[in-house]
């Protein structure tokens, strides 16, 4: 554990909780892509299956349980409790275009051919692109609520902080996992456009709207 990894995890946690609180307080999931949330639920499920097979630390297990619970909680709020507020007309990204290629890639580029390892790798590839339906939705509606912008910024920052963590781990403990590093870089690049808008607009008190 180092400061970059901890900041990344906390940023990730903040993002997930922000989303839950936003939906709960406003009683609405308008502007949130249900498809991205479905992808994140798949990501956490396939990655954290190791809750049952390997123990790293109380911290790790606790966070995994929180991420899984919050992710399914978000799906419940979006697709059951506040379903009438879900803006499915603008959530039109075809997620099979992300699900299938990630699955194929996880069979081609993987460290070891075991079921658990392929599922873990799949979760890494899918996570890298899971935000695309949400970004597509923002670009279609041309705007995002400020709280949604904060959510996206926290979620994007998490993998960027993990990149610093991997650089740190490379020098301090010779840790080098190219699968997660390349996927993490791709994931972070996808947010760059949004980061720019966030810094130039939202941080200056303006609403995020596209020209």
């Amino acid at each position: 554990m180092n400061i970059f990894r901890l900041s990344g995890d906390l940023s990730h946690l903040l993002a997930i909780l922000l989303l839950l609180v936003k939906i709960w307080k406003t009683r609405s999931c308008a502007g949130i892509s249900g498809k991205s949330q479905i992808l994140f639920a798949i990501v956490y499920t396939t990655r954290y299956l190791d809750l049952f097979t390997s123990f790293v630390s109380v911290y790790n297990s606790f966070m995994k349980v929180v991420f899984l619970t919050a992710s399914y909680g978000t799906l419940y709020l979006m697709f059951f409790k506040f379903k009438p507020t879900y803006d499915h007309n603008h959530d039109s990204f075809r997620i099979l275009y992300l699900i299938i290629p990630s699955l194929v890639l996880s069979f081609i580029i993987v460290h070891v051919y075991t079921v658990m390892e392929i599922l873990w790798t799949y979760s890494i590839y899918l996570e890298a692109v899971a935000i695309m339906p949400q970004l597509f939705m923002v670009s279609r509606t041309g705007e995002a609520e400020t709280i949604t912008s904060h959510y996206l910024f926290a979620l994007g920052s998490y993998r960027a902080l993990y990149i610093l963590n991997w650089i740190y781990r490379y020098y301090t403990e010779d840790f080098l996992d190219m699968i997660v590093i390349i996927a993490g870089i791709v994931q972070t690049i996808l947010y760059c456009d949004f980061f720019y808008l966030y810094i130039t607009k939202v941080l200056k008190g303006k609403r995020l709207s596209l020209p």
Partner: peptide
């Protein structure tokens, strides 16, 4: 060993 198969990150 260049990577750990026990994934210790989240």
């Amino acid at each position: 060993e260049s990577f750990k198969l026990q994934h210790d990150e989240l």
